[in-house]
Amino acid sequence: MSGQAPEPVAVLETPIHVDYSFTAGLAQSRFLKGLAEGRFLGQRCPRCKKVYVPPRGSCPTDGVPTTDEVELGNTGTVTTYCVVNVPFQGQAIEIPYICAQILLDGANLAFMGLIQEVPADQVRMGMRVEAVWVAPDELGPTMSSVKYFRPNGEPDADYETFAEYL
């Protein structure tokens, strides 16, 4: 061994690498293709009439296929949200930023989206928002086609209108 004693080993890195091949299924494929066209496509349950977006192809309540496709608009309501203040490896956005559950108008299922163009401390439950899409030539079958949501200036939605989705 050379002259100076090397540092004893104190830590060990154990990398994990897992390769998945993700198959979206029919319903989600429709949804993703809609995103590539700048549209939100959901599906309605024939029994309870609830509209699911993103759709999974069946109604979790009734267990029946959701066969009717429904196009939703660009606006929705923040049902709940969280302010991300903690940096982490691979973070793509400057902190603080807002992850929110967004209930599109006409939908019965909220999904997660970013809220931008508003200070983090001004985001609130019931805030009305609209989707901001990437440039048309950047649209693709991915949630990244939606850059983020931003306030659309409408008065806040009443709590009762989204209480069921919290």
């Binding site: 104190a10 060990l12 690498h17 897992v18």
Partner: peptide
């Protein structure tokens, strides 16, 4: 057409030995 895409998951644990 059903969409399909690769999805790679990488995470590295650092363990005190």
């Amino acid at each position: 057409e059903v969409l399909r895409a690769p999805h790679a998951l990488d995470y590295t644990y650092t363990r005190s030995v």
